[in-house]
Design a protein around this nucleic acid. Structure first.
Lengths: 300, 300
DNA sequence: CGTGAGCCATGCGTCTCACGCATGGCTCAG
DNA sequence: CTGAGCCATGCGTGAGACGCATGGCTCACG
C-alpha cells in the first residue's frame, strides 16, 4: 500500500501549477511517464483522483485542491527547518561538548573556557575528562566536538585520519611537585642529580607514563607511596610524604601547600605534546574553542 | 545528494520520542539497522547530526529539536489533508459529472437531476451529451462519473468489464410523434398498418438507429424531410409536415403542439434498454444519482 | 473527413535504493 | 571480567523509480 512522499507532493504541486504532466516533467527534471506514474501513486495514496485528464493537459480535482493547501504548508515548514538548522550550524551558541585528558582538563581547558565565555556568552561548553583513546572514540561518535589529547614519546600512535589535529604551542615540559616547606620549593630550577634520594609518590592506575611514575631517568627511585588519583598524590606531597612528577601544564593548578619546580635533565629525551582534535568540517563554535585552546598564555 | 523524506521525518519523530533506534524500529515495523540508516540519510540531508549516540540509546541534538518542531507540523498537515480528502469522498456535495446519450439527456436525466437537487442541495450535477462509446471512454478517463447509455439490438456490444452497469427498469418502447391536429393524436395506440402512407421526418446524422429513420418495419416509407437535430425534426412534426419515430423515454418532453402515441407492431423485434454505468467503486454522490436515475417514474 | 500535433497511459528493461540478516564494536552495570 | 543493550556496517536480495518506446485519444486545421 503506497503512501504519500515529499517527492510526490512536489510533483502534484508542480503539475497543478503547470496544468500538464509534460510541462511539470520539464521543470522537475523527469520524463512525462515518470510524472504520470508518480501522480498515480499519490492518487492511490489519498484514495481519490487528483487530476481530470483532458486532451490538452490536466485539471485539479476538488481533492487535489484540498491536498495542495496542505502540501504548500508542508513545503514551507521543511524549508524553514532547513534554514533554522543551517543557522544553528553557523551561530556560536548552544552547547559545545569538549573532552580532555586529566591534566589538560584541570588547567589548559578551563582557561580556554573562561576566555570563550567572555567573548561568546551564548555558548555553553561542557567538559568531560577521559583518556586520549576514549576521547577519540567519543569524537568519532559525535558525542564531543573537541578532544584535547596528549601525543608523543611513550604514547600510542593514535589514528587521526579524517580528523583535524592541531598542536598547542609552547609548554613547560615536566617538573616535580614538592611541599611548600621542601628545600626545592624556593628554587627556580632543580638539577636532575638532586632528585636522587627523594621519596616518590606515584600513580597506581592502569596507564603507563611519566605522570604516574617516578622521574623517568632515575635508575633506582625510592617509591614511598602509591595512589590512584593525582589529587590524592598531591595531598601526600602537600603533607611532606614525598615528591611527585607533574607536567608544567598543570603547574598553575596545584593545591594549596604544593609548589611546582622545573627540572633540568639533559638525559630526558621524552617529548610530549598537547593536541586539539576536531572533525575536518567542524562547527563555528568548535572552531572558536580550538583556537582559544591554542592561543592561551602559551601562545604567541 | 539525499533529501528529506516523509518516512525519514516519521522515523526522526519516533526515535526522538523513544530515545532509541531499537524501540522506534519496533513501533514503526523496521529493523534497528534500517532505522540507523534512515537517520543517517536524514542527517546527511540536513547537514547536521540529529542524535547523540550513547551506550543506552540516543538523545536529540539542538538541530533535531529544530527539525522536530517543523516535522510535527508537517505530520499534522498531512493527516488533515487525508481527512479532508476522505471527507470529500464521503460527502454528497461538490460537483458530479454525468454524461448521457441525447434522448436520455433530454428526458430521464433532467428528472433525476431535479430529484437529487431537492435531497442534496450541495451537489451540483453537470450534464454532458454524447454517444455511448464516447461516454464510456470519458467514464474510464475519469472525466465523468455516471454514464447513461443505450444497449440492445442494433447497437454495439460495449465492453463494460470492470464497470458497474445497471438497467433503468420499465420503458415504453418506441412510438411516433405527430402534430396535435393529426388524426392519431387522439388515439391511445396506433396499429403499425396505419403507419403506411404517412410522410416521415427523419434524421440526417451519422449514427444509424430507429430514432433517426422511419418506422423500422415499414418496407417502403415515404420520407418527406430530413433534419440533423431532433428539435428541428419535432418542429417539422408540430407544423404538420410529417410524423417522426420517437422513443417512449422522450415522450414527456416533446414540445408544444406535438403528441406522442404508442405503436402496436408484432413484427418489431428490436429491444433497447437504458443502462446506468459507473465505476465499481463509485463515490456516494455517484451512487445517489445512479439510484435516482433508476427509480424515476418508471421504477417501482 | 483526414491528418498532424499534443498529451496521457503503459509495457518493458535497467539501475538504484530500501531493507533484513548477521556481525562487530562500544559502554555500562553487576 | 562478563553479559546485556544498543548502534554501525558489510552483504545480499527484492522492490521501486525511472527512461525509452509505443499506443490511444482528443482537438485544431486544412
Amino acid at each position: 500500500m503506497s503512501e504519500m512522499t515529499l517527492a510526490g507532493l512536489r510533483v502534484v504541486v508542480e503539475v497543478a501549477r503547470r496544468g500538464s504532466f509534460t510541462a511539470a516533467a520539464e521543470v522537475l527534471g523527469y520524463t512525462q511517464s515518470a510524472i504520470s506514474r508518480q501522480v498515480g501513486v499519490m492518487e492511490t495514496a489519498v484514495g481519490s483522483p487528483l487530476f481530470e485528464r483532458w486532451a490538452r493537459g490536466v485539471r485539479p480535482t476538488t481533492a487535489c485542491e484540498a491536498l495542495l493547501k496542505h502540501a504548500r504548508q508542508v513545503v514551507v515548514h521543511l524549508e524553514a527547518a532547513e534554514l533554522e538548522i543551517a543557522g544553528l550550524r553557523d551561530r556560536i551558541a548552544g552547547r559545545l561538548a569538549v573532552g580532555a585528558y586529566p591534566t589538560a582538563a584541570a588547567s589548559l581547558v578551563p582557561r580556554a573556557m573562561a576566555r570563550v565565555k567572555e567573548e561568546h556568552p551564548a555558548l555553553a561548553v561542557r567538559l568531560g575528562e577521559a583518556g586520549s583513546p576514549a576521547l577519540l572514540r567519543r569524537l568519532r561518535a559525535g558525542r564531543i566536538e573537541v578532544a584535547v589529547i596528549a601525543v608523543g614519546d611513550g604514547l600510542p600512535d593514535y589514528d587521526l585520519s579524517g580528523l583535524r589535529a592541531e598542536s598547542v604551542p609552547g609548554g613547560r615540559g615536566l617538573g616535580v611537585a614538592v611541599a611548600d616547606g621542601h628545600p626545592f620549593a624556593t628554587r627556580t630550577e632543580v638539577d636532575v642529580r638532586d632528585l636522587a634520594g627523594q621519596v616518590w609518590v606515584v600513580g597506581a592506575g592502569g596507564e603507563g607514563g611519566p605522570q604516574f611514575g617516578a622521574w623517568p631517568t632515575l635508575s633506582a627511585p625510592h617509591v614511598g607511596h602509591e595512589a590512584r588519583t593525582w589529587q590524592t598524590r598531591l595531598g601526600l606531597v602537600a603533607a611532606g610524604l614525598g615528591v611527585s612528577v607533574l607536567p608544567g601544564l598543570a603547574a598553575d593548578v596545584v593545591p594549596r601547600g604544593v609548589t611546582w619546580v622545573p627540572v633540568r635533565d639533559p638525559g630526558l629525551a621524552e617529548r610530549r605534546q598537547t593536541v586539539v582534535v576536531t572533525d575536518e568540517d567542524r562547527s563555528p563554535a568548535a572552531d572558536v574553542f580550538a583556537q582559544a585552546l591554542r592561543s592561551g598564555p602559551h601562545g604567541s
